[in-house]
Amino acid sequence: MRGAWFLVSGIGLLGFIAPVVGLVFRLTPGRTPVVREVELLSQAFHYDPLQPGEAHTRHALGGRIEVRWGERVVLHLRAVDTAHGFYLDGYGINRVVQPGEEVTIEFIAIRPGKFRFRCSETCGPLHPFMIGELVVTPNLPFYSSALGTIFLALAVVGRFWWLKGEA
């Protein structure tokens, strides 16, 4: 049983390796990038991503953009009410858009995982919490770390079940 416990614990800890690989190292796929265009409306204190031609609804469910790993992302950033910023974690992109203008931001989604984008231009009281999400699928860091959590919990519970004499 001791071997089983070490196996489960090991798998649990491996759950931390994948997020490290995903979030730290740039993994560029060796194929021609598919272009993904998204219109991104910024408004105090949220982002609304729209597909080209889609009408803007004020209470969009969330400022979440999903693209596939390796895609070329083209964001058409617009501000609805006042000047807003767009800072993308992990990509070092930082742009400001004024009401009435459109800023185009292009990048290749080179890392799988979730990356937040935030307003970088003071826009009101909740400015520090004006946050959206870019999810580059497959979201390996999340799935592997979730698996890691389950195995880690199994390992801790297993310590009491399998290593009775030693617990």
Binding site: F16, V20, L23, D89, G90, G113, S145, L152, V156, V157
Partner: peptide, 21 residues
């Protein structure tokens, strides 16, 4: 900012391990 989850993950795991124990 992109590495914050790598700090959060071990913190949450530590809490999980200690709480189960």
């Amino acid at each position: 900012p992109e590495l914050v989850p790598l700090l959060q993950l071990p913190v949450l795991w530590l809490g999980l391990v200690v709480s189960i124990g």
